[in-house]
Design a protein around this nucleic acid. Structure first.
Lengths: 207, 207
DNA sequence: TATTATAAAGAGATCAATCTCGTTTTTCAA
DNA sequence: TTGAAAAACGAGATTGATCTCTTTATAATA
């Protein structure tokens, strides 16, 4: 004779997560406390601890569910040209950076940097890097295979380099704000540089 | 009848700072405690609190004193060509990234990201950005003025962009380790890209 | 409607870190 | 040598966050 349906349980979980998300965004990962999460969710310690056993547990469930923050959905738009996809990707990143304060990315950086020595987090960091690297690499490599891109440098290195730049620009936007660092100009500049490296076919005549 | 000379006081300060530095490097800023600092310095709480009133106070004194970590000494070598100086700068950065684990940089990132909302830290972050931006800009701009560089893009944007990249590569090295991200190749790649943007005079003939 | 298993509540025990303050030690000048 | 002022000590008071555990409420079934 159990008393609550799995659906209901999931609804409670989602409700806790939704308010926890706001807590993390507003206070940051380190500054947020379980008490904040308990209070803002309108529940009790008992109620929340029934679902999550600590702050990290809540945060990891959040991350798992909205992995899209910083992860990349390359599934769609397979039919467009490699360079178009690349431009779309850059636009997407630019948009994400601008809205960085209203997402979990700043908390992720906190979580990864502060916990850089902890085994579990190292694993997560590594997995995330491989996933991001893999999806960007595949998508550019496809463009090369199809003869749409003629990169002047090894794609492997280019991808590592692009990730470094993206991480840097996220970090700078978080701590300095995107106006001070001239985000828009940096992105335009980066697009130009990338084009001159990847050499998309429709532009070769202009070289 | 005071009892201790200012020199002695400074020596004690330095002694505390030296051991505190190791504590921060080994444990990270957030994980380090005053107890760690007290213990590792072979002193008592009373003894340490006579000089510093909390962990942040110790850390800020450390930062102030070894600002060179991440700051840039452009004072020397004014006579060399702009491109040589740039290459030297890049080499210096590459070296710093490789040794990032044995310096305070990881703690700085912790301190800045976790405290991104605190007024005092915001100010520090801003000052640091302006200082770094200013010194890189000046040094490249000088090269342009002297006719040694012919940048194909606005220098302002280039500098913002370079800082983003450097911060990104520091961050990636801290959380992923520099082997995984192919640091050396990234730097070689970056040098090539920068050369094609800054167009140093001795290379124009090869274009 | 009564039963009962489970969910939720929330007071308080526990833990860990900070920092103070009364005591002891040191150092220098007389 | 001694005495007084400052330096250093370190036990313990304070704070704040975590998480448990007992109690209370709820909801499905019989």
């Amino acid at each position: 004779m159990p008393k609550i349906t799995d659906q209901k349980k999931d609804a409670v979980r989602m409700d806790i997560l939704n308010t926890a998300r706001n807590v993390f965004i507003q206070k940051g990962y380190e500054a947020a406390t379980m008490k904040d999460i308990v209070t803002s969710s309108g529940r009790s310690f008992g109620g929340v601890y029934l679902y999550y056993s600590n702050k990290e547990d809540v945060f990891l469930d959040l991350l798992r569910r909205q992995y899209e923050d910083m992860a990349l959905d390359f599934a769609s738009e397979k039919q467009m040209s490699a360079w178009c996809r690349f431009e779309q990707f850059m636009g997407e990143q630019e948009r994400r950076v601008k809205e960085v304060d209203s997402g979990l990315a700043p908390c992720m950086y906190e979580y990864f940097i502060v916990g850089r020595r902890e085994e579990g987090r190292r694993k997560l960091i590594e997995d995330r890097y491989q996933a991001v690297y893999g999806s960007i690499f595949t998508f550019i490599y496809d463009g090369v295979q199809r003869g749409e891109l003629h990169p002047s440098q090894p794609v492997e290195t280019f991808v590592h380099w692009l990730i470094s730049f993206m991480d840097g620009i996220f970090l700078e936007s978080i701590i300095n704000g995107f106006e001070r660092i001239e985000l828009v100009k940096q992105f335009d500049f980066l697009r130009t540089v990338c084009r001159s490296i990847l050499k998309p076919i429709e532009l070769e005549e202009y070289q």
